[in-house]
Design a protein around this nucleic acid. Structure first.
Length: 572
DNA sequence: GCCGTTTTCGGCCCGACTGTTTTCAGTCG
């Protein structure tokens, strides 16, 4: 998709303009980038079909941005962007990723110290050159160093949600090639890890050379790192690396098992093989020199006396033992999900009306959808007050009547705010009238552990609060989770019957896999929600399901696998 | 730079928080 490439450039332009203190234009670029990211159609398709006129129909894209998109599609470049980069040769996109640094501070750092990238930034901070600058100080310098450390930890990894669509696109293109007999995405992407380093693809073919030639000629490739007879590696313009590997059909299953990993799972599996006097490697399962399996994974696991292990839990975290005993969990699946309850509408600044959101949910096969707009504390998100919630109630009742379907229902919730002292920003009388109440932390993230734990527990104790949204508050590659005593949270959830959310929004994935497993073991119920601010974002559901699976969650652990009447029983 | 008109320029999300200041700028959401 060219959309993501262009969106990335527009975001950067917006940051350069902010550095130059240009008014309002940064906002226009940011808005356009956001729209492009969520656009269903590929801009290049739109352009081919309808030209500039078609581009201008996209909301937030006017004459000038349409011309820039055209320029990019035709030449692969945007001159205006290059000019800006030349003027301030600073790596804004990674520098702004350091928490606490924005365009203005970056500008000062460049002008006073000539800092252009994170490496120079770190050097300057360590040499205490930043603290004396006007508007900076000791604390800022320390924060910068901390921010850099955090960045380093997540360096070179991409969000599952951003890389998956690109991987699927490449997968589909390769699949159509007639020389490709079998094909799978492998590696950590197949295991649906929350962040992924690169895209690995495995192919069975008798004509590897043809597959290689086709692969390196794919659209969107920036450069080819290497190309051999059975493997190749490329860098995409979007910044991802893609590796493919071609093997003969006869050993495809063994190769699949090997390349899906994880390494730890493979080591443990090979130990099982050894204990049975067998040998397992990427070419097959062997008894002495004789190959006894290798064509597909299932026969390999079977001959090892194990059940087939779903890729999401191949981490050597107890799945080997469970598979040997035939006691693997029956993991929750996307098709088990009957609806979801954390969606935002245009009532609080989301992109789509309640009706549009509901229609999309129906289209995706949901039996219900919950609208849970932000509440008044979050001014920036147009948070609703008590009165507006009542008005929204009427609108939802009206829509339910109009849709008149027994099979589908819109529920009214709200994503309320847990204030600093653990109280909720909406009065009880108003909460009472909602079908359910979500509460989440959206401010004051830096609190002492016991204080933060108590803050959350107090909210859970509220007799109207049913669900805690994104319980740990982390943002992948951006912000650490706030400090909480998770065991105490679990205990409280159990006591008060509070449901913890698995937020499927790509940058959140919160609860994460480990916490999901703890939750399941503690017998605390969970709900998988998308946090969609746009109807297209409902597709994130599968990312949440994947994390639930990684956390060994089964259908019974997740309340939105239940039909509406049973679901409602979980609420206070 | 977009949008929406009162068709040709004015409006465009705003409060909390932090770390600087010593009344506020920059960043975040």
């Amino acid at each position: 998709m060219r959309n993501q490439e262009i969106a990335k450039i527009f975001y950067e332009i917006s940051e350069y303009l902010e550095m130059d203190e240009v008014a309002f234009r940064p906002y226009a670029y940011k808005k356009a980038a956001l729209t492009l990211e969520n656009l269903e159609q590929d801009v290049s398709d739109i352009y081919i079909k309808e030209g500039l006129k078609g581009l201008k129909k996209i909301p937030g894209i006017g004459k000038h941005l349409a011309l820039k998109i055209e320029e990019y599609l035709k030449t692969g470049k945007i001159k205006y962007f290059q000019k800006l980069k030349k003027k301030s040769p600073v790596d804004v996109s990674t520098l702004t990723a350091v928490e606490g640094l924005g365009p203005k501070k970056i500008k000062t750092l460049y002008q006073k110290l000539g800092i252009k990238n994170v490496k120079q930034l770190e050097k300057a901070a360590k040499a205490h050159k930043i603290a004396p600058l006007f508007g900076f100080g000791e604390k800022t310098e320390q924060n910068i160093l901390q921010g850099i450390e955090f960045l380093k930890k997540s360096k070179g990894r991409f969000l599952l949600g951003e890389i998956l669509p690109i991987a699927r696109d490449i997968y589909e293109k390769l699949k159509r090639l007639k020389e490709v007999e079998k094909i799978d995405i492998v590696g950590s992407l197949k295991r649906m890890k929350e962040t992924v380093k690169d895209i690995d693809i495995l192919i069975a073919s008798r004509k590897p050379k043809k597959v290689m030639d086709f692969f390196v000629s794919l659209d969107g490739i920036e450069k080819v790192w290497s190309k051999g007879t059975t493997r190749a590696s490329v860098r995409m313009r979007t910044g991802f690396d893609v590796d493919i590997r071609v093997v003969p059909k006869e050993s495809y299953g063994a190769a699949l098992q090997y390349f899906i990993g994880s390494k730890e799972h493979n080591i443990a599996t090979r130990k099982v093989a050894i204990s049975k006097g067998l040998k397992l490697n990427e070419y097959g399962l062997f008894k002495g020199k004789r190959k006894i399996a290798g064509k597909n994974e299932k026969e390999i696991y079977k001959l090892l006396g194990m059940d087939w292990v779903p890729p999401e839990i191949r981490e050597d975290q107890g799945e080997i033992e469970a598979a040997l005993k035939g006691k693997l969990p029956k993991l929750v699946q996307l098709k088990d999900i009957k609806g979801h309850l954390h969606c935002h509408s245009s009532w609080n600044g989301g992109e789509n009306s309640i009706l549009e959101m509901a229609k999309k949910a129906m289209e995706l096969g949901c039996d219900y959808i919950g609208i849970s707009d932000h509440t008044k504390f979050l001014r920036i998100e147009y948070g609703l007050n008590e009165k507006q919630l009542l008005e929204q109630r009427k609108e939802i009742d009206r829509l339910n009547k109009k849709l008149g379907r027994k099979k589908f229902r819109i529920l009214q919730g709200a994503e309320t705010n847990i204030l600093k002292d653990g109280s909720i920003d909406i009065k009880d009388e108003a909460l009472k009238k909602l079908d359910y109440v979500i509460a989440g932390i959206h401010s004051s993230f830096k609190m002492e552990k016991s204080e933060m734990t108590n803050r959350l527990i107090k909210a859970m104790r509220n007799k109207h609060v049913d669900i805690i949204s994104h319980p740990t508050g982390r943002l992948l590659k951006q912000r650490e989770e706030y400090e909480i005593d998770f065991d105490k949270i679990l205990k409280a959830a159990k006591e008060f019957g509070t449901i913890l959310e698995i937020n499927a929004y790509p940058i959140r994935l919160d609860l994460n896999d480990l916490n999901i497993r703890r939750c399941k073991e503690a017998g605390v119920k969970m709900i998988i929600n998308t946090d969609a601010h746009h109807k297209e974002q409902m597709k994130f559901l599968n990312l949440g399901v994947a994390q639930a699976r990684r956390g060994w969650a089964e259908k019974k652990d997740i309340i939105n696998t239940q039909p509406l009447n049973k679901l409602l029983k979980h609420f206070k």
